[in-house]
Amino acid sequence: MTQRFMRATGKLRIIFGPAHSSSLDHEMTEENKRLLVRRQAEAQQWETVRRPDGSTYVVPKNPDDKSLR
């Protein structure tokens, strides 16, 4: 089954070309740096709570803050 999948995707790559890939060691652009800072600040507003059954959910760190609800 795996070999059939690889043959099928190989045929698709012939038609559509290879997937775009870039190196991971390039410098970040200023726009990406600003976006990263903003995303990190947003992530710090939340905390993950784990239930006894092992499932998790996120809640705001400040329960009085209704700005994102």
Rank of each mutant, 00 (worst) to 15 (best):
M1A: 15
T2C: 07
T2K: 10
T2A: 12
Q3C: 09
R4T: 04
M6D: 08
M6K: 12
R7D: 10
R7I: 05
R7K: 15
R7N: 12
R7L: 13
A8S: 11
K11R: 14
L12T: 07
L12W: 07
L12D: 07
R13V: 04
R13E: 08
I14H: 06
I15Y: 09
I15W: 07
F16Q: 04
G17Y: 00
P18G: 06
P18H: 03
P18K: 08
P18I: 00
P18Q: 06
A19E: 09
A19N: 12
H20Q: 12
H20N: 14
S21H: 15
S22N: 09
S22I: 10
D25W: 07
E27C: 06
E27I: 05
E27K: 14
M28T: 05
M28G: 02
M28S: 13
M28E: 10
T29I: 03
T29P: 00
T29N: 00
E30L: 11
E31F: 06
E31T: 10
K33D: 03
K33E: 06
K33G: 01
K33S: 09
L35T: 06
L35C: 12
L36V: 04
L36N: 09
L36D: 05
V37Y: 03
R39E: 08
Q40S: 13
Q40A: 14
Q40P: 02
A41W: 02
E42T: 03
A43N: 11
Q44N: 13
Q44Y: 01
W46D: 02
W46E: 01
E47M: 11
T48F: 00
T48I: 11
T48E: 09
V49Q: 05
V49P: 01
R50W: 00
R50Y: 03
R51M: 08
P52C: 01
P52N: 11
D53W: 05
G54L: 00
G54Y: 00
S55C: 04
T56G: 02
T56S: 07
Y57D: 05
V58M: 13
V58D: 10
P60D: 00
P60T: 03
P60A: 05
P60K: 01
P60E: 01
K61I: 04
K61W: 01
K61D: 01
P63C: 07
D65T: 09
D65N: 15
S67L: 01
S67A: 15
L68Q: 14
R69T: 08
